[in-house]
């Protein structure tokens, strides 16, 4: 008796269950899966959103772009949803290309990143890139190239560091995090539409709490990778009389405070492999040259960033133990400009 009542109740519950939950059902072939999202601003007024959507059915064209404008990003996204033929599922967005003119306004950029981070649809792992070019050109460029597939733009950033050491990627959550960090700034890769390939890597743009500071070249970006302990294996350098490839690098830093001024000693050990050299060039000369070159590059970059008060190397992170939590909040303005770095490179054959 009791059991039958319980089962009757459960039948009622089950039927309620089946009545609910019908909102997310949409077969994958009826969804559009945009891979790249381009955001730009027209005339400093309206947001313009561009989506690159692969087309699975056709063999001629691999993808198409959809563009829509709106007062806010959500607004524009809404327009796209309304006007598109299929349901748009943003869960596969892999890259977000932001036009530089939009990125110049600090507050707008912060809001944009906050929106992207908070959005349930767009994964926070999606990478961010900055372009000077017209966003639409970058996204539609893929269609003119032979032999690339729809995910080419995403693949471009996922070659792996061993294959393309200069290239690096920055996901949304890192950009978001950098807005709140007081001791570290980040670099965002800058790209433009290429002639033969889909994209061309132009270097990186330094962001300080959501504000664009400046753009640095690929070689300088490499310095940042070195300091972030990223793998720089396979990086090649032309020294004029020889060319070398870095096979391994390791950096060791020691920190201390001198008269309330931060002081860092960094030793970079490079294991190199000599690819070619002119006759009569000794190993020693090559070592000296590479050491001098790297040190000079670093000091230039440091001077530049100290001037703009953006701690791109993340030195401040290492002072967490030395400077108190509250003082560290002013690291960029109070300590970083006075930072002294003793940077030494030790190159060696493998």
């Amino acid at each position: 008796m009791i059991k039958s009542k319980v089962s009757r109740l459960s039948i009622v519950f089950l039927s309620i269950l089946f009545l609910s939950g019908c909102w997310d059902i949409k077969d994958i072939n009826n969804r559009s899966l945009p891979l790249v999202l381009g955001i730009s601003k027209e005339n400093g007024q309206e947001y313009k959103l561009t989506l690159q959507i692969p087309i699975p059915k056709s063999d001629n064209q691999i993808s198409r772009t959809v563009t829509e404008k709106g007062k806010t990003v959500t607004n524009a996204l809404g327009h796209i949803q309304t006007n598109s033929e299929n349901a748009i599922d943003y869960s596969q967005v892999q890259l977000i290309v932001i036009q530089k003119n939009l990125a110049k306004n600090q507050q707008e950029f912060r809001d944009l990143i906050k929106f992207l981070m908070g959005s349930e649809d767009i994964p926070s792992r999606a990478l961010v890139a900055i372009t000077d070019d017209n966003v639409e050109n970058v996204l539609s460029n893929i269609n003119n190239k032979l032999g690339v597939n729809a995910s080419a733009i995403y693949d471009y950033f996922n070659k792996g560091t061993a294959w393309a050491p200069e290239l690096f990627s920055t996901p949304i959550w890192e950009v978001y995090r950098s807005q709140f960090l007081s001791t570290k700034d980040i670099a965002v890769p800058a790209v433009r539409a290429g002639k033969d390939t889909v994209l061309v890597f132009e270097g990186s743009t330094i962001l300080r709490q959501g504000q664009f500071i400046e753009t640095i070249g690929p070689k300088d970006s490499q310095m940042i990778n070195v300091f972030n302990n990223k793998d720089v294996k396979g990086y090649t350098e032309n020294l004029g009389f020889a060319s070398i490839m870095v096979t391994n690098s390791s950096i060791q830093s020691k920190i201390k405070m001198n008269n309330n001024k931060p002081y860092v000693t960094s030793d970079l050990r490079l294991k190199i492999h000599i690819l070619e050299r002119k006759q009569g060039i000794t190993n020693k000369k090559i070592y000296e040259k590479i050491e001098r070159l790297t040190e000079r590059r670093f000091y230039n970059l440091l001077k530049k960033t100290q001037h703009s008060q953006s701690d791109i190397f993340g030195f401040g992170q290492q002072f967490q133990h030395v400077i108190s939590y509250h003082d560290l909040k002013d690291w960029r303005y109070k300590y970083y400009p006075d930072l002294k770095v003793d940077f030494k490179v030790h190159a060696n054959l493998e």
Binding site: S10, G21, C22, W23, D24, E120
Partner: peptide, 23 residues
């Protein structure tokens, strides 16, 4: 709801969870 079914209202998931827990 956020993780799995962003477009479904939360109460349907609530019913599901309640049903299993009570069972």
């Amino acid at each position: 709801n956020d993780v799995f079914l962003p477009r479904t209202p939360y109460w349907s998931i609530l019913i599901l969870l309640f049903f299993i827990s009570v069972y």
